[in-house]
């Protein structure tokens, strides 16, 4: 009897209200709108990919993949010689990326080594040595340091650094790979330092306590317990720093001398991939082989940095999983 009463109310109950069609459509439209925007980062990555490849692959129609490695020069007597030169404006245009790749590595690798030493050192200092009050001030300072525009660093290396190292080391060229790599270090040190600090900081305090409890000194704890535990995070920061060094433009454009030498001497002028695009794109005519070749360099750069970033991210996400106890 009571049951029947209960259900008989249902028809005019205020709970019986159905979802209004307008409300439902409106809420789903809003969600759809946000979803489209939400995917924007992905959409832009795909667009960058498409438009680099769209232009860059046209280079292969005229230049050919092998020509990006070396130019096959045949002299009058029919002897073939491999020429590794980037000389796209010559009558006999040469498009070898080898000197540019070497130039990039010759600036990026020393920069990464310097930055690893100073950056990891700074990270250790911030996380394990500096007292918390100082640290609260230093962390934003590092952030500020990371925010210095690269053109400023390029300028200061050009105006002050180049002469300083010229007097000190007497290099073959005044502007050279070494000066550029010092400039690059200013960009990469804050990256490595702050990520290293993050990695060290994320190590649970129990581990430190356990080590001290066993009578270890501070340095023993840092070097044998904390650093090994944070190894993956620190290495990810170095990979990211290396990627950044490869992709950086203004400093190498201003300080590396821009001569496409094939050399392993860091006191010689070199030309990086980024600087080549930056210096030549403004002057080439659209649709020429040279123009497409510059886009092809873009593909190479994009691909290298993409995989370096991906590797670093995978390492970091694995570390996060491991560190959540």
């Amino acid at each position: 009897m009571e049951e029947k009463d209960f259900f008989s109310k249902s028809a005019d109950s205020k709970y019986a209200k159905r979802i209004g069609k307008f409300t439902r459509v409106k809420e789903s439209a809003i969600k759809f709108f946000f979803a489209v925007n939400g995917a924007m980062a992905l959409i832009f990555i795909i667009l960058i990919f498409i438009f680099l490849f769209k232009e860059g692959f046209k280079a292969l129609e005229h230049i050919g993949l092998l020509d990006f490695l070396f130019f096959d020069r045949a002299d009058a007597s029919g002897i073939h010689q491999k020429v590794f030169e980037w000389y796209p404006t010559s009558e006999e245009a040469r498009y070898s990326l080898v000197p540019l790749l070497l130039g990039t590595l010759l600036t990026a690798i020393p920069a990464t080594i310097i930055s690893t030493l100073l950056g990891v050192g700074t990270g250790i200092y911030l996380s394990e040595v500096a007292n918390p009050k100082l640290k609260e001030f230093l962390k934003p300072a590092i952030e500020l340091f990371a925010g210095i525009p690269t053109v400023v660093l390029g300028f200061i290396m050009l105006a002050v650094g180049a002469s300083f190292f010229n007097d000190l080391l007497n290099p073959t060229n005044r502007l050279n790979a070494f000066v550029a790599s010092i400039g690059l270090s200013f960009v990469i040190i804050p990256i490595i330092a702050s990520l290293t600090e993050d990695a060290l900081h994320s190590i649970p305090n129990d581990l430190r306590m356990a080590s001290y409890g066993l009578g270890a000194t501070k340095w023993q704890t840092v070097s044998r317990v904390i650093l090994p535990a944070a190894f993956s995070g620190v290495s990810a920061s170095i990979i990211l720093g290396f990627g950044r060094a490869i992709g950086e433009t203004m400093i190498v454009l201003m300080c590396a001398g821009n001569a496409a030498n094939i050399t392993a001497d860091i006191f010689l002028s070199v030309r990086t991939m980024t600087a080549t695009i930056a210096a030549e794109m403004g002057e080439v005519s659209q649709g020429s082989d040279h123009y497409y070749a510059l886009f092809f360099i873009g593909i190479v750069l994009f691909t290298i940095t993409f995989f370096l970033n991906l590797a670093a991210e995978i390492i970091i996400s694995k570390m996060r999983k491991k560190n959540t106890f």
């Binding site: 939400g38 995917a39 980062a41 992905l42 832009f44 990555i45 667009l47 960058i48 438009f51 680099l52 769209k54 232009e55 990211l240 990627g243 950044r244 490869i246 992709g247 950086e248 433009t249 980024t274 695009i277 930056a278 794109m281 510059l294 886009f295 873009g298 750069l301 994009f302 940095t305 993409f306 370096l308 970033n309 991906l310 991210e313």
Partner: peptide, 24 residues
Amino acid sequence: IIRTSINNLAGVPSIVFGLFGLGF
């Protein structure tokens, strides 16, 4: 994938953005 793209977009060399701006 979207979250990965955000990180990856942040890592694209700035000169490549220049090429992208020109091409796109």
